[in-house]
C-alpha cells in the first residue's frame, strides 16, 4: 500500500495525463453527432466500450460449447464474450510466440553462419539488403498466396519478419565482440568451435536482447497484419469483423487488449533479460 502511494506520488504527472486523456475522449464522444450508418459512434464513449461492445465480443464465440453461439441465433452472454476473448487471444499469442521463436532461432543461426564466413556474407549480402528494405506488411498478400490463409502461413510470416532483425542483429553483435576475448580463449586451448560456444554466444547476448525487443514489436505488427487479411481467428480478425459493421467500440477493446499483451510481453522479456545478464552493471 505504501509503495503504491509512493508510486502515485512519483508518477502523478503521468497519472494526470492519462486521466485527462480519458476525460477528453469522453467529451469528444458526447459532442460528435452519432452516425446513421454505423452501429456505434465514431468515438464511442467509455461506457459503451465497456458494456455493449465488450458483451458484443460474444459474437466471436463460434463453438457450440459452454456458451451460446450468436452466429447460430444464440444470445450474447458474458461467458461467451470471455471465451471469445480468450480463444482469439490464444490464437494470436500462439502465432506470435511460435513465429517469434522460429524467427529468432533461424535468424540467429543464419547470422552466426554469415559472421563466420566472408564468402557466405558476400553471397547473402545483396539479397539480405533487399529483404531488409522490403516493407514487411506489403508482403502479407504474397505469403497468403504462397502458404494459404492458415495458421502456418501466419506463423511463417511472423518468423520471416522477425528473422531479418535477428540475422542483422547477430552479425552486428558478433562484429562487436572484442577480438581479445576470442584470442584469449584460443590461447587457453579453446578450439574455433568452442570459441563460438564459450565466448561469442555469451558475449553477444546483451545485444541480442535489444534485437528481441525490436523483433517483438515487429512480431506484433506482423501477426495482427496477417490476421487482417487471411486467417479466420485471432485479435486482428476481430478488428476486421468489427470494421464490417463499423463497430468502433469493439476495435477499441481489441486495441486495449493488444496494448496490454504487448506490455506484458515486454515486461516478461525484461525479467528474462535481467536474469540472464546478471553479470552486467545493473
Amino acid at each position: 500500500m505504501r509503495s503504491l502511494s509512493a508510486a502515485v506520488r512519483r508518477n502523478w504527472i503521468s497519472i494526470l495525463t492519462v486521466i485527462f486523456g480519458l476525460a477528453l475522449w469522453e467529451v469528444i464522444s458526447w459532442t460528435i453527432p452519432p452516425s446513421q450508418l454505423s452501429s456505434s459512434s465514431k468515438v464511442p464513449s467509455l461506457e459503451y466500450v465497456f458494456t455493449e461492445a465488450l458483451l458484443g465480443m460474444a459474437d466471436y464465440w463460434k463453438f457450440d460449447l459452454w456458451a451460446p453461439v450468436p452466429e447460430k441465433g444464440g444470445a450474447q452472454t458474458a461467458l461467451g464474450a470471455v471465451l471469445a476473448i480468450i480463444y482469439h487471444s490464444a490464437m494470436t499469442l500462439f502465432r506470435l510466440t511460435v513465429g517469434l521463436i522460429v524467427g529468432a532461432v533461424l535468424g540467429t543461426v543464419i547470422g552466426l553462419l554469415l559472421s563466420a564466413s566472408e564468402t557466405l556474407r558476400s553471397i547473402a549480402g545483396a539479397p539480405l539488403h533487399f529483404l531488409r528494405m522490403t516493407p514487411l506488411l506489403a508482403m502479407i498478400p504474397a505469403f497468403q498466396f504462397w502458404f494459404g490463409a492458415t495458421d502456418l502461413s501466419a506463423i511463417i510470416f511472423v518468423a520471416y519478419g522477425t528473422s531479418i532483425p535477428f540475422i542483422l542483429g547477430a552479425i552486428n553483435a558478433v562484429a562487436n565482440v572484442p577480438k581479445r576475448y576470442m584470442e584469449s580463449a584460443r590461447t587457453l586451448g579453446a578450439s574455433r568451435g568452442s570459441v563460438y560456444r564459450m565466448v561469442v554466444l555469451p558475449a553477444i547476448l546483451p545485444e541480442m536482447f535489444s534485437t528481441v525487443i525490436v523483433a517483438l514489436g515487429l512480431a506484433w505488427s506482423a501477426v495482427i497484419g496477417a490476421e487482417y487479411i487471411g486467417v479466420q481467428s485471432g485479435l486482428g480478425r476481430i478488428v476486421i469483423w468489427s470494421d464490417y459493421f463499423s463497430n468502433t467500440g469493439r476495435m477499441i477493446i481489441i486495441t486495449f487488449l493488444i496494448t496490454a499483451y504487448a506490455g506484458v510481453s515486454f515486461a516478461l522479456i525484461n525479467i528474462v533479460r535481467q536474469r540472464a545478464l546478471g553479470w552486467m552493471k545493473p
Partner: peptide, 13 residues
Amino acid sequence: GMVFQEDSVFPWL
C-alpha cells in the same frame, strides 16, 4: 598461455 595488456577477463563468467 597469454596475458593481454587490455582487460581480457570474460565479464559474463
